[in-house]
Amino acid sequence: MISAIVDGALGFAPLRDIVFLAGWPLEHRLTQAVRKLAERRPELFGRLGRFRTAVYILSPNELPFAFRLMPDATQATVRIVPAKSPGPSSVRISGPLATLIGLFDGSCDADSSFFSRAIVVEGATDAAMALHNTLEAAELKPSDILGLPSPLSGSFDALTGILLPRLAHVG
């Protein structure tokens, strides 16, 4: 029903429209989370150097959509895009969702994931490396990535600390 309405209204492929509509609250939250992080810890974005304006596609294998990130500090944007047609980018990093989250919070070793072929990097390797090294230095928790308020963050991080390693093994 939703897809039919959107299809008629905008003339896009149904899946793309659903992703677009469903993704808006999430991309708004993620964009705000990155921008707040930039306000709190501007030095992290200095590590990115010229890659602040690089465009990253982060594509979890299990999902029909991907995250399109431009980590330009307080001008950063996160968009939800269809995994099969994410648009132009500097680099695309694909892998299991749990592994990608593990790369963000530093609980997962990126090189091991690359050696084992769990993650695939296509495009500008230097941009991928700059993002990885910045995240490594950042000591982010999953709640930081989602921009959760402090009353929720402790419980959420404890829960993901239990669940993500199990998901990574399943993946």
Binding site: G102, G106, S107, C108, D109, A110, D111, S112, H132, N133, E136, E139
Partner: peptide, 12 residues
């Protein structure tokens, strides 16, 4: 060896 690896690597 491995300054380029990260926290997960060095911890283990």
């Amino acid at each position: 060896e491995g300054r380029q690896r990260g926290k997960a690597y060095v911890s283990r």
